[in-house]
Amino acid sequence: MGRFLELDDTSRLDLNQLVKMLPGRQGWSIVKWLPRGSYVRAILSSWPVLQQYGINTPVRVAHFIGQGLVETSWLTATEENLKYSASQLIKTFSVYRNNPRLAEQHHKQPEKIANTAYGGRLGNDQPGDGWRYRGRGFFQVTGKDNYRRFGEISGLPLVEDPDILSRDLKASVEVAAAYWDHMDLSWPADQGQSRAVSRGVNRGDPTHSSPAYHEDERLLWTEKVLELLGAAEQVIDGSGRDLSLGMAGSDVRKLQEDLLFLGHEEVGAADGVFGRKTRLAVISFQDEAGLEMTGIADEETLTAIEAALEDHSKPPADQQATASRIRFRPFEQGA
């Protein structure tokens, strides 16, 4: 399997490396026979289509693939998994929250669940439409209206044959690219507004007030793909948020750099991903600063870190007349 997407003759995305990073790591000798291998081949052959829809820079490609990874459960699902338990139904769909008895009756019965959860909305106006137009493909197109709209854009007969999206994964990538273009998601991707991209894909509206499903994972995997493309600096938004396990972005990287500068070497590499080592370093700083040791870099903790950095940068009184020390933090704006 070769490399993919030679961008500006410098940046390349090696899908071999990406596959090795995904949950349930498997060798290509196994992956090539699975949906994951089929998705990889579909992406590899889709560069002309992505260019057609303006997904033609490292940042845009990384956001597009990062979203698709989560939408497809890391390239393992060709259609929506509707085998929900009763408790999952109540948690996921309002129709079942309002009728717990119905949730018990539909426990792990995908067709009944789809027709109940999606029937009468999303353009599903005929009996069985909820199941017929369930989520499929790289961006999990759902509902007759969306099948019709993106069938027209891509020139595919999706209303007549919705299984195209699970049967032909290259077609599903093309439809996802058409959706991306229709929602004008290149602009928020260019601005590093990963939450807006996530909500545009999952909520159908980049300005939606509710988080996308698994929004933090979408940010994390976008960041990972950006790193593979060598374009990761300052691309994930979220300034001012509390930072905790599983998050990713330039603000996480800055936190890691700050902790390293303050001597909390247990943080490890400043890779922009809030993992176990970063959590331990945050706890260590909180202990040192007399704060509650939550492992979450909340506003109080981040303010204390900034204060510590200021104190750490000041020379001792007996060295005031000597040249001031200069600290180097490569991703600090204005440095």
Rank of each mutant, 00 (worst) to 15 (best):
P316E: 00
R199G: 09
L158M: 00
S250T: 07
A62T: 09
E174K: 12
F261C: 05
G120M: 07
R329Y: 04
L280I: 11
P35V: 14
A269L: 08
H106M: 14
S87G: 03
W221I: 13
S45I: 01
N56R: 06
P157R: 00
L226E: 08
D216E: 15
R279I: 12
T78I: 12
T207S: 07
R132N: 14
P162D: 06
T10K: 15
L156M: 08
L7G: 09
T76L: 10
E174W: 02
R276V: 13
T78E: 13
P206R: 06
E223I: 14
Q234D: 12
P162W: 06
V59S: 07
S194N: 14
F64A: 03
G192T: 06
S209E: 04
L34V: 06
N16I: 11
S29T: 13
Q256D: 11
L229G: 10
L89K: 04
V175P: 02
W180E: 08
D163S: 14
T294L: 06
Q333V: 08
P100F: 09
L156K: 05
I43H: 00
V173N: 06
G2N: 14
D190F: 05
G204Q: 11
S46D: 07
E111R: 13
F4R: 09
A232W: 04
V70P: 06
S284D: 15
W221T: 14
Q109S: 06
E6A: 15
V95P: 05
L34K: 14
H208L: 02
Y147W: 08
S194R: 04
L22Y: 07
E292F: 01
R241G: 11
T57Y: 01
V19C: 11
E80M: 13
L5P: 02
A335N: 10
R134A: 13
G275E: 02
V282Y: 07
G290V: 00
M183R: 05
Q17H: 12
W180M: 08
D9E: 15
R327K: 07
P23R: 09
I43P: 01
K144S: 03
D258T: 00
L280Y: 10
P127W: 08
E300W: 00
I326D: 13
L228V: 06
E299T: 09
F285R: 02
R241I: 10
G275Y: 07
L50C: 00
V59R: 09
Y213L: 15
D145T: 10
R41W: 00
L220V: 12
A42C: 03
K254C: 03
T57L: 02
S46Q: 02
V282H: 08
Q26P: 05
L165I: 14
W28T: 04
K112F: 13
G66D: 10
Q52W: 03
V31K: 00
N146Y: 11
I305K: 05
A304F: 03
V173A: 05
T76S: 15
K108M: 12
V173T: 04
H312L: 01
V235N: 13
E299P: 02
L158C: 03
M21Q: 15
L5F: 15
